[in-house]
Write a protein that binds this DNA or RNA. Sequence first.
DNA 1: TAACTTATGAACATGGTGATCAAAAATGAG
DNA 2: CTCATTTTTGATCACCATGTTCATAAGTTA
Lengths: 178, 178
Amino acid sequence: MVIKNEHILDVAALVLSKRPDATLQSIAAAAGVSRTTIFNKFPTRDDLLEALAADALQRIGSVLALVPDGKPSDVAAVMIEVTRGLIPLEPRTAFLRAAPHRTDLDSMWAQAATPLAIYIGTAQAYGLLRRDHSVRWLTASYIGLLFAAWDEILEGELGTAQAARLIVESWMTGASPK
Amino acid sequence: MVIKNEHILDVAALVLSKRPDATLQSIAAAAGVSRTTIFNKFPTRDDLLEALAADALQRIGSVLALVPDGKPSDVAAVMIEVTRGLIPLEPRTAFLRAAPHRTDLDSMWAQAATPLAIYIGTAQAYGLLRRDHSVRWLTASYIGLLFAAWDEILEGELGTAQAARLIVESWMTGASPK
DNA sequence: TAACTTATGAACATGGTGATCAAAAATGAG
DNA sequence: CTCATTTTTGATCACCATGTTCATAAGTTA
């Protein structure tokens, strides 16, 4: 049978999201494939992680392609829609957060978030977001809240349904009472 | 010379914050100590990480001891003060975030954050924080923003001086314009 | 069926971890 | 200062995951 890289990446993402230090042996077993086959397709462990990162990047890119160009109208609505798309990607990105600190991963996050940063910058220019915080920080703080929500979901403390609304509410209006 | 555990933990925290997968050999070398000595004090790598986690927990606890009891008055002021205390702890906690997903680490974070959660709960009860978000989420979102700021600082995109204000502003009033 | 591609198992080297132990160095009591 | 005790150290070993090679088996395709 021809084994697709896609299948290995699927299984690897799943296994690594649970155990970031899982052996290639266990990943191979979970994929119903020999360890050698994995090495044929991904010569080193890092190559596999890199492929996973590229895959995750691509998926994030697909979601962020949803952000509209031009003059933004309802920032909250757009952000909620984007967030709804990002929430399910947790298993695909978990290993990225747990992986040893690698500069290229940081730059990958930055690259993946670029369309979002552009949107945020545009919204800011139109006065729809505060101007006394940098676009970079507005973006980083959103991602930080996304990570926090992912963790809460993993721990079963937050449902995926409410998560998007919660994230965007916190990001836009904060913790102060109305 | 008598080697203090404290010294090893200091060096280990420093080395691991840069390379979470650093070998014990390299940590020993950085500490000017033999690998055997580290094993005498911390039988396994996990024991060392656990000690580091306990140390970080204790440091966080010291900072969070600053949060006042009783009726809160100026939440923003308290949060900024707490955040100013937490910002420098990044090198001590970086390895915790990079370490493979371990349940005990999650519970450690939760335990360390308890005083903060209590404070937030009290402030919420007094109407100083929004009531439509759970105390758990208000706490988690704050920590998420703290992590985001730590990352930005690491990348040289944020100064430690402004970080605390930025975090608390984002946490309390969000990204919306005033 | 035959040629070709892909997957597999086996074997081996390497390096980090975990563990043991005797020798050496530092410490402290008298 | 001396001796007993504690601590540190280097050396050695087993174990396991990674990385690599290669011949064989299984599959696909002409």
